[in-house]
Write a protein that binds this DNA or RNA. Structure first.
Lengths: 146, 146
DNA sequence: TATTGTTATACTCTATAACTATA
DNA sequence: TATAGTTATAGAGTATAACAATA
């Protein structure tokens, strides 16, 4: 028989800690009336990996209709600009504005603060090993590599 | 200026990988018509950390009303038994049945399979370091220590 | 009056489906 | 006829608030 505990599995710990961290991030974003997915969209634009709304939806693994409402909010804040692609007028191209870059930097700082809180409980070597392993996992699972 | 990327933060990676892993776990649980929180409740009962519904709700950080519906479903499956506490008849005590233990073992196996998939991409030392760091983080953040 | 569990209701997030405009 | 974006609608998941039983 097998006496592995559910709560000791990596899957359980990634799931629960992930939810905890996302919750903390959301709390910090609330000041800007943003949710994590808004910030994820800003990061996609900064990376240059996609620009049309449909491509962004595919990359983020969300429904195209969700990108519409995320972009609506970000446009309202002046963080992104929506422009028709002249070569195919069905396409809306999203671009980061200077304000959008600032906003992304602010949100990245919030994430970095959470990182610092997490690292407090770990020794420096443990923290480094964790970062390395998480980067590998992200890359192998289709998430941004850097 | 600071050129740290959002997607390189531990917070971002824990959030996104956590969501991914929870999604994979949910898919496997769908065969039993269970969601991750049902399994979390089974794990709480096995650990013996709480038995009354209200205590369970506090431990899981969910609303008491949610515990009612999770317990309804688990009782329906014969995985838990609901009994009035004779010394305080307001309290409902939940206990794992033999079937509940079996079910938990099956779900733990599903989590272990996901662990194996994740570990494939990592070297054995990296996998071990990750487990160690995640256990430390879980403990320091009020999640089950083992 | 306070507490446990339950029920009724509402809210948040997201997806699916129907629609418009371009191609 | 197919595709990009949008709008309308619906569903999952969960919380809050009102309620019943017991303390």
């Amino acid at each position: 028989m097998n006496d592995v505990k559910l709560t000791s599995t990596l899957a359980f710990r990634l799931g629960t800690l992930g939810a905890l961290v996302t919750e903390r991030f959301s709390e910090r974003l609330a000041a800007h009336d943003l949710k994590p997915k808004h910030v994820g969209l800003l990061a996609v634009l900064e990376s240059g990996a996609a620009a049309s709304q449909l491509d962004i939806a595919r990359l983020m693994n969300v429904a195209p209709s969700l990108v519409v409402s995320l972009a609506d909010r970000l446009e309202e804040l002046g963080a992104v600009r929506r422009e028709r692609d002249p070569s195919d007028r069905r396409r809306q191209t999203l671009t980061l504005t200077a304000q959008g870059r600032d906003l992304l930097a602010t949100c990245t700082e919030a994430a970095a603060e959470i990182d610092a809180e997490l690292a407090e409980g770990l020794g420096p070597e443990q923290a480094k090993a964790l970062r390395t392993a998480m980067r590998t996992l992200a890359t192998r699972n289709g998430l941004p590599a850097d």
